[in-house]
């Protein structure tokens, strides 16, 4: 059984307008997406900003209300559960946020930040708690004395480690990482990515890794879903998507990755121009008359594309 199965999930936000500020329309931030996560895998969710990645992640852990569809975690539908029923599972799903500068409460010290999620679930003696936190702090590679420091006393990479330690405190099964390295320098990014890979093995974690950086996604993920305007454009293994992209939008995203070989830069530029040209000529065969993506169709056992 898959660990997480998202089935036709929709999250719509009301737009208010007119004289009396009534609901005149909806932003379809997530508009019918389905995907599955097998235990232990890393699933990459990639797309440009505003395409609905964060909303998807927040929908799964219950921070955004789901308008329609199912979120099956180990077989139970989280979308249908009440708040209190959900709590049991929420412990198994944790989120890491993009901005290591604002996602940690600046008035709490590291001990309190890391211990906080646990306090909501378990009663522990202060001594026990301290031990658990110390072990985790040590595991994420911070100094033991850093538990009495405050977030502003750490660098970006260190803060992201604190965020990870907090997520690990409850022994989750699934971690939703929303652009965890987007705000970091390359060298620090490498540190956090390596580290996430290490703890994945150690704690047997499943990742839903959200990013707009296709290089990072390719490096890390087993399977990838490409999102555009709240819908899936293409889904497949990393090899499917990067070596054999089918949808025009996917091709465009991949062509946008900077070419690391200076010799090939003009080739790359011409490829991008060709794709832009194709956008102009073939737009209709990739989008329906409302500019909405078609539903996914499989093209191989692992690979599916939104085409007519």
């Amino acid at each position: 059984m898959s660990l997480l199965k998202v089935n036709d999930m929709k999250i719509h936000f009301p737009i208010r307008g007119g004289f009396f500020r009534t609901v005149v329309d909806h932003i379809k931030a997530v508009d019918g997406i389905s995907f599955e996560l097998e235990p232990g895998e890393t699933y990459g969710l990639v797309g440009e900003s505003g395409c609905g990645k964060t909303t998807t992640g927040r929908g799964i852990i219950g921070l955004n209300t789901i308008t329609g569809g199912e979120v099956l975690f180990e077989g139970t539908d989280l979308a249908k559960q009440s708040r209190s029923e959900r709590r049991k599972h929420v412990k198994d799903i944790q989120m890491i946020f993009q901005d290591p500068y604002s996602s940690l409460n600046s008035r709490k010290n590291v001990l309190n930040i890391i211990a906080e999620p646990l306090r909501n679930f378990e009663r522990m003696s202060p001594g026990e708690e301290l031990k658990r936190v110390q072990a985790l702090v040590d595991r994420v590679g911070l100094n033991p004395e850093s538990i009495y420091k405050y977030p502003h006393q750490f660098s970006g990479g260190q803060r992201q480690r604190i965020g990870i330690a907090r997520a690990l405190m409850l022994n989750p099964k699934l971690i939703i990482a929303d652009e965890p390295v987007s705000a970091l320098d390359v060298s620090v990014q490498a540190q956090v990515l390596n580290f996430m890979q290490e703890i994945q093995k150690e704690f047997n974690l499943t990742y839903l890794f959200i990013s707009h950086d296709l290089g990072v996604i390719k490096h890390l993920c087993d399977r990838i879903g490409i999102m555009y305007k709240g819908r899936f454009v293409e889904e497949g293994t990393a090899a499917d998507v990067y070596n054999n992209p089918q949808h025009l939008y996917t091709k465009r995203l991949i062509a946008a990755i900077p070419e690391m070989n200076p010799e090939k830069r003009f080739e790359k530029m011409h490829l991008r121009q060709a794709i832009n040209e194709e956008y102009r000529t073939d737009y209709d065969s990739y989008f329906d008359k409302d500019g909405r993506m078609f539903d996914l169709k499989s093209v191989s056992e692992t690979h599916s594309v939104a085409v007519q």
Partner: peptide
């Protein structure tokens, strides 16, 4: 060597 797309996956 710290760039993901420059290194072998994983």
């Amino acid at each position: 060597n710290s760039i993901p797309s420059n290194m072998e996956d994983k």
